[in-house]
């Protein structure tokens, strides 16, 4: 997970505070609500110039920082 991704995530996670965001960090527990998740999707697709494939548009993909990063990494390799 690159530092740019963690920096991108932080503004969407209102309970993250100054704590480190790790692969295991639960995005919902850190405050990612549905509207912010949509805005995060837009930010990801704009920043990394990727479109997450249909089969990865699931709640599981958005569960943790690691699962989301894995989806982005996969999409970048396509």
């Amino acid at each position: 997970m690159d530092s740019r991704f963690a920096d991108m995530l932080r503004p969407f996670l209102k309970y993250a505070g100054g704590a480190e965001i790790t692969l295991e960090s639960s995005l919902r527990d850190l405050g990612l609500d549905s509207m912010q998740a949509i805005e995060l999707l837009f930010a990801i697709e704009d920043t990394y110039q990727v479109s997450l494939p249909d089969e990865l548009l699931t709640d599981t993909t958005f569960a943790t920082a690691g699962s989301l990063w894995a989806a982005i990494s996969g999409a970048r390799q396509c």
Binding site: S34, M35, A37, I38, L41, L57, T58, D59, T61, F62
Partner: peptide, 9 residues
């Protein structure tokens, strides 16, 4: 199209 309470459903 999915039961999960998530914006991707």
């Amino acid at each position: 199209h999915r039961p999960q309470r998530h914006f991707t459903s």
